[in-house]
Design a protein around this nucleic acid. Sequence first.
DNA 1: AGCCAGTTGAGTCAATTGACTGATGTGTGG
DNA 2: CCACACATCAGTCAATTGACTCAACTGGCT
Lengths: 240, 240
Amino acid sequence: MTGDRTRPAGAGKASTRELILDTAERLFAEQGIFATSNRRIAEAAGQGNSSVAGYHFGSKADLVRAITRRFTAEVERSRVGLLAGLDGSAGLAELLGCLVRPWTDRFESLGPHSYFARVCAQAMNSPALRPIVVEEGSHSGSLKRTWEALGRYLPGGADLSTEIRRGVMQHLIVFVCAERESALAEGRPTSRQTWTDEANGLIDALYGIMTAPLADLSPSPVRSRPYGRVTEDGAHAIPE
Amino acid sequence: MTGDRTRPAGAGKASTRELILDTAERLFAEQGIFATSNRRIAEAAGQGNSSVAGYHFGSKADLVRAITRRFTAEVERSRVGLLAGLDGSAGLAELLGCLVRPWTDRFESLGPHSYFARVCAQAMNSPALRPIVVEEGSHSGSLKRTWEALGRYLPGGADLSTEIRRGVMQHLIVFVCAERESALAEGRPTSRQTWTDEANGLIDALYGIMTAPLADLSPSPVRSRPYGRVTEDGAHAIPE
DNA sequence: AGCCAGTTGAGTCAATTGACTGATGTGTGG
DNA sequence: CCACACATCAGTCAATTGACTCAACTGGCT
């Protein structure tokens, strides 16, 4: 987490850099980011220099940044394509799809050897690493445009709670992907058959969050809020 | 993460143990679990023995377990009380409140010096630590009863996707609490005024997830799913 | 008072880690 | 063909860490 030793992108052959990124990403996902030392990365990558990772990327934070950037770049391409296929009257589900499917599609194309979701989930919850993933994500123009379009669906417009809602939704996407990724890696059963099914389920959940009735923030009584009641057969009814 | 050096609970005066737990919890939240060594914990707690934490709790995993157990016990008491106040016809919002409010109430009572939400968020996303928090959480009888009651609201009954949905919702609670906790600690503005407001917003989101229309899992076309459409004024309409 | 199990203080130790150094390898442009 | 810049290798170094030892202390009990 010290200096910036990152080499300019075009320098030298990129294969070793990619190999380091692949190896680090895998070890980070499997054993944890902070439980993985530069040495182990170098050994697992079959490199003699015990600190190749440091040589190419600098600190561990910079390594996480590079891993994040690589994934984000891929996802950005995909999202730009999705957005291009949407006209102005795109529905909420389509817009949420622009949030979700670039991720799930990427993981699907990576097959059983995807790791980034778990890495991202860790980084997002680490005090030292979260600023990095947040910053890297903020560079995405397509993401910004998607959220602007989604803003039309949010009752309160662009207030502070919208910012939090956005954080919640992004967190949800990462968590669900990480969960499936982990299950696939360990051979555990998955709740849905395919990544596409998972994306649909995720969009359902996000749809629910977006359209949930907003409680007025007045200091109302804690219990018994004006939601639906249980009916005899156990079904529920959405008010209004 | 090696042997189990944990002492029987009743032995000796408990003040040092509590002091270690408090200190470790704070450092874990502020600097990250894996960035915090036993030595730093001992120093910050003003203890001469550089490995008091190891002496009292064993490995770092065991320390996280003890921190989790302490919080969970407190929350359990609170949830039992909430459940006792509910009759058989409790609505969805009330049941979700039994999930959310024990946490938010606890954080409110801790004031600006709460740390567990951030610790829990980290642990849940760490490969080495997640089994621990999951296991500790599984001991809660009141939580189990709440989920059984919530099961009546889930369309599919108790299938595998329900398990995931549950994971999503619990993850959401932890994340939102961690977000507010972090904001309070750093003096950043919070999206909601009080922990109670935060709980209401959280229940809104969970309500949305629970009642979101479930997409059939058939291999339908990826885009254009049967959700609401945009109207001229930008509002949205929930189908049916 | 005197014992004693458990706790705390103070320090050691091997292992690991990130950062560093210098020699050697390599491939690309001139 | 040959510099030259970059990449890789092999090894060193101080700092940190978890685990450990042993002495000193504490409070409860007889």
